Computed example of a mutant assay.
Amino acid sequence: MTEMLDHIREAVKVLPGVEERQEDGATVFLVEGEAFVRVDGAATVRGDDGWVALPDSDAAAIDDAVAHAWELAAPRGLLEAGGR
């Protein structure tokens, strides 16, 4: 899971307003206080219909899922500022 967490940390570097926190034993990434990625036993992201698991090995799919989750959680001002 450390490799996945490292990859997620790299993916969120380009997204504005992201904060990393430890909550209940999980690493959580937030934008303006809204969680969009959670890593504990598995890595999950905010999706269109709730939280979904990240793919295990496809780096491009992970990056896209993280960026999409950020877009779902980010306030309009950050989205208008450019996002990804």
Rank of each mutant, 00 (worst) to 15 (best):
A59Y: 02
D24A: 15
L78F: 02
L30A: 05
V18K: 01
W70S: 00
R21G: 03
F36I: 03
F29E: 07
T44W: 03
W70I: 00
L79S: 00
A60K: 11
L79K: 13
D49A: 15
I62P: 00
A61D: 12
R84C: 07
L5D: 09
G47H: 09
P16S: 02
T27M: 10
A26R: 14
A42R: 11
G17W: 05
R38L: 12
V31I: 06
S57H: 07
E34Y: 05
A42I: 12
V12K: 04
E19C: 09
V14H: 03
V14I: 13
D63T: 14
R9S: 13
A35M: 14
M4D: 11
A26K: 13
A65T: 07
P75H: 04
L78H: 03
S57K: 07
D63G: 10
I8A: 09
D49P: 00
A11F: 07
V52P: 00
E10M: 10
D48Y: 03
M1E: 08
V52R: 11
R46G: 08
D49Q: 11
D6G: 10
H68K: 10
V52D: 07
E3L: 14
P75S: 10
E20K: 06
G47F: 06
I8H: 04
F29T: 06
V14R: 10
V12C: 06
E3N: 07
P55L: 11
G47D: 08
D49W: 03
D64A: 15
G25A: 12
W51S: 07
A11T: 15
E20M: 12
D6V: 15
G83Y: 01
G82M: 08
I62Y: 01
P55K: 10
A67T: 15
G47V: 07
E20L: 10
K13F: 05
V14D: 02
G82N: 04
V12A: 08
E19L: 14
P75V: 04
D48N: 04
T2D: 15
A59Q: 08
A11W: 00
H7N: 08
L5K: 07
V28K: 10
L54C: 12
S57F: 02
D58A: 13
A59H: 05
A60N: 05
